[in-house]
């Protein structure tokens, strides 16, 4: 091995001593490297785009028709469209964040991650950024097609606040995905079932297709623990400002909850990853396929 920039051979200890700048640069490259396939995949694999848009659109349409059959007020149709768009992010968190390390292990990539000179949080951050970009296209398409086809009219009085709430929601949402990535790896074979469990039950608890307040006292607990639910509730209040349907809490309170969640989930993810790394190095078992 050669010392960076000198071309001379260094001792193993010298080669391992990196400057802070080099560590940061290397980790930023890892972030970009892991985000790259997800972003570029949008253009390289058009069939992804079709399924990414078509599948959630089918689900949204079915719920829209249920509300039509029930002759529900028009804002409920809008709730379903916004819920469908946000559910796309949740699916991305579950399948492409939480379950990703498990799959990387199956493909043999995980041991490379552990041995590469970068922090695993950089890999997770790259997955999150790439996933966010990829899923935004899907979410925007669902909102656009749903709005045009089903005539949803939005009443957005504070667009900047709405954008801020959306971005703030993404931090704890993907932070939770990062935390789950470590936990799913620890839970091994159960990961697939857990990912399945995190769909319909979370759509129900998160009020993806109805105002969260409809689930009664449980709504308070959900808003305090599930970033999808609290973010969705805040965004619905901002997107349908004139609607009669009230949120569980005022938007300001929900922003504070999201900020706390962001810190808790990111710190939790960092701790879980540290534990996982120790376990992987000590037992050498977590990186083995088919475990």
């Amino acid at each position: 091995m050669t010392a960076a920039g000198t071309g001379t051979t260094a001792s193993a200890r010298q080669a391992a001593e990196w400057s802070t700048e080099r560590v940061i640069r290397s980790n930023l490259r890892a972030v970009m490297g892991r985000a790259y396939p997800r972003v570029i995949g949008l253009t390289r694999e058009p069939s992804w785009l079709f399924f990414e848009i078509f599948l959630p659109f089918l689900a949204v349409s079915a719920f829209v028709f249920v509300y039509r059959a029930l002759e529900a007020p028009e804002e409920y149709i809008g709730f379903v469209v916004i819920g469908g768009a946000m559910a796309a992010f949740w699916l991305n968190v579950v399948w492409m964040m939480a379950a990703q390390f498990y799959w990387e292990k199956d493909q043999g990539n995980l041991e490379l991650y552990f041995t590469a000179p970068m922090h695993l949080m950089s890999v997770l951050a790259g997955m999150a950024i790439g996933g966010l970009v990829m899923t935004s296209s899907r979410a925007l398409a669902v909102i656009a097609i749903g709005s045009i086809l089903y005539g949803v009219s939005f009443d957005i009085q504070q667009p900047w606040l709405l954008a801020g709430v959306f971005l703030l929601t993404m931090i704890p949402l993907y932070g939770l995905g990062m935390l789950f990535a470590s936990l799913f790896l620890l839970w091994g074979r159960e990961a697939f079932h857990l990912a399945q469990l995190l769909q319909e039950p979370i759509y129900f608890l998160g009020g993806v297709n109805f105002p969260i307040g409809a689930i009664g006292p449980l709504a308070g607990l959900v808003v305090a623990t599930l970033p999808l639910a609290v973010g969705l509730d805040a965004m619905r209040q901002l997107v349908f400002a004139g609607s009669d349907v009230a949120g569980v809490l005022p938007v300001a309170a929900e922003i504070a909850i999201l900020a706390v969640m962001a810190v808790v989930f990111l710190v939790g993810a960092r701790l879980a990853l540290g534990y996982l790394e120790t376990l992987a190095r000590r037992e050498g078992r977590l990186t083995l396929r088919w475990q």
Binding site: V66, L70, P73, Y76, P201, F204, F210
Partner: peptide, 30 residues
């Protein structure tokens, strides 16, 4: 998936019930 039978049973029960409950709440709320 050669998984814990308890977890598999929970998964088998909760997922379809949650799917049905979404529709039930949509019905009730309207």
């Amino acid at each position: 998936n050669w998984s814990d039978p308890f977890l598999f049973a929970v998964y088998t029960i909760i997922k379809p019930l949650a799917a049905a409950m979404i529709l039930v709440v949509m019905f009730w709320v309207v």
